[in-house]
């Protein structure tokens, strides 16, 4: 069992976990992920490592409660335990001094972009962060990002913070201001990474994306996470998770992500019903005087 040192919501439905994991903390590099199971009948899911501390022996993951497993995970509190935790997995991000690096991130992807932005800065790049979210409550890690990069720009779908629009609009603003990025890193939901890759392909800026695929073992053994990059099949877990965004078949990956949509909904429904029952039972207990 793997101890949760600290758990706290940092945005609606988005929780940050500090996990006891001394071995992983020691080895982990930017861009790598862990596989975890919440309970003894749980599925294995991949989550990118956002931060770590070698001396204190912990890693940090940020989880958005979308499906059954992530929703269940987000019910866990400080002091609880995970069933299984293994890593670090995947190839570390390739970092060099490109010149001007723009890190574009959406949703919880910002937490994952943070270590890459920091590593990019340490390698001598001028780093600009573009953070996108649906609204201002969902903008996460803005302050931490501001600490490590030269400049942070925000975009929200509803205009409640920063520019009203998408991260691609902010990139266009930068270009209009005469800033020419040498390298783009895009991390976030698939449609966002696809839109960025489309945009940068046209203007010829190399773009790296971090793909989130369905995985089972996470070590190359099963091939569930395959994607097409440059016309060739890759395994995201051992060949990635980072790839040249201009080469990725986003349409295929998008439909592969929906492979179990029906089952996931069923599973999520079962979970919510169980949670509801539990809450009702607890309420009953409270109401009955001792």
């Amino acid at each position: 069992m793997y101890k949760i040192i600290k758990a706290e919501f940092i945005a609606p439905n988005v929780k940050s976990f500090i996990l006891e994991a001394p071995h992983i903390a020691k080895k982990r590099q930017a861009g790598q992920f862990v596989m975890l199971r919440v309970h003894d009948k749980g599925e294995r899911i991949p989550i990118t490592i956002a931060d770590s501390n070698t001396e204190e022996g912990w890693i940090n993951i940020i989880v958005q409660g979308l499906g059954k497993t992530s929703a269940h995970l987000n019910t866990l509190e400080t002091g609880d335990h995970l069933q299984d935790l293994v890593g670090p997995l995947g190839l570390p991000t390739h970092i060099e001094n490109w010149g001007t690096l723009v890190c574009m991130s959406g949703g919880v992807g910002t937490a994952e972009a943070l270590p890459i932005a920091a590593a990019g800065k340490a390698a001598g790049n001028r780093v600009i962060s573009i953070i996108g979210a649906r609204n201002k409550d969902l903008v996460i890690a803005q302050e931490q990002m501001a600490e490590v990069v030269d400049e942070v720009r925000i975009s929200t779908d509803d205009g409640s913070s920063g520019r009203h629009g998408l991260v691609t609009d902010v990139l266009q603003d930068l270009m209009d201001e005469g800033i020419k990025p040498d390298m783009i890193v895009a991390i976030g939901p698939l449609p966002m990474m696809a839109a960025v890759s489309n945009q940068t392909k046209e203007i010829g800026i190399p773009t790296m994306v971090s793909l989130n695929a369905i995985m089972v073992d996470g070590t190359g053994m099963c091939g569930a996470c395959r994607a097409t990059v440059g016309g060739k099949t890759v395994f995201v877990c051992v060949d990635g998770p980072e790839f040249d965004g201009h080469q990725v078949d986003f349409k295929e990956l998008g439909s592969r992500q929906k492979m179990y949509k029906k089952q996931e909904e069923e599973s999520h429904k079962c979970f919510l019903e169980r949670q509801m029952k539990k809450m009702k039972a607890e309420q009953m207990n409270e109401e009955v005087p001792a």
Binding site: K41, E43, M221, C222, G223, E266, C270
Partner: peptide, 29 residues
């Protein structure tokens, strides 16, 4: 790479290790 095309490793791992045949009692579909 169409949905529904598995490697034997994935199909068997989902069934054997992850007990997919007991979904949704077990989480793995």
């Amino acid at each position: 790479n169409l949905n529904g095309v598995y490697s034997a490793n994935e199909f068997l791992t989902r069934s054997n290790l992850m007990r997919g045949y007991e979904f949704p009692e077990w989480d793995t579909p």
